[in-house]
Amino acid sequence: MTFNSLVKATALVLALATPQALLAGGAAAPLPTQDWEHKGMFGEFDNNQMKRGAQVTVEVCMGCHSVKYIKFDFLRQFGFTEQEVKDMAESQGQTKKSRMISSMSEEDAKDSFGVIPPDLSLMTKARKGYEDYTYAMLTGYLNEDESELINNAMEDDALSDSEIQSIAAKLHLNPDDPEKVKEVVTRIQNGENFNKYYPGNFFAMPQPLMADQVEYADGTKTDLHQLAKDTTAFLAWAAEPTLMERKSTGKGVLLYLILLTALLYAIKRRMWSKLH
């Protein structure tokens, strides 16, 4: 079998091998992918972005969520002053040496949302899609136009075909299933939280981030995309603060192994060439 035919065969197998049941039943739209500066062999966390993400996390996310494996004090490594860290901790009723635990108790959260908001320390590692999943959760809610479209729909208790088509397209629903579209519209109108990317679409978390919700000290614009990206990047750091150490060690190790393997190959070649 030639290499080319092998590649073709593999591609064919992969195409056929995607289980259709998953695609049909999963409902949620595929996650949009973002460029993450900390990913890849040479990716690094950007201190300024970490500062911004930490700010959003403390001011917004920590209203309900904790980041329990990180202590407020750790944030100083991004350039926050001791006083700034102290203030952030105090906003949650904590001291700078304590873990980043939300001031909202789990019982209160459960009363409000029906579930306990998950801890965010490992969020970017604990879902399929990793960072892209977190970003999609933060940005997958209905925008103004979409909300308006939904709210104006079904005024006469029924959806017209054109409404079904346009709603299904915007919300990534199956246009051939009008009953499902109708159910979704009704639930949104009843105040449930719709997220295009959340599996099952209806999410206990109301839209957490709005544009211009915080003010960045470094003057970076605060549209939804930027807020979500900074927050996700910060959470990626929180999920694995040793990532940079890992990659820099790894580069050295790989270079070393290439040298060692080359030397061993040279010896092996020389030794075995005399055999034949």
């Binding site: 070393y256 030397l263 010896i267």
Partner: peptide, 8 residues
Amino acid sequence: LMLATGAV
């Protein structure tokens, strides 16, 4: 070669 490899 042997010495270098041994050292590495």
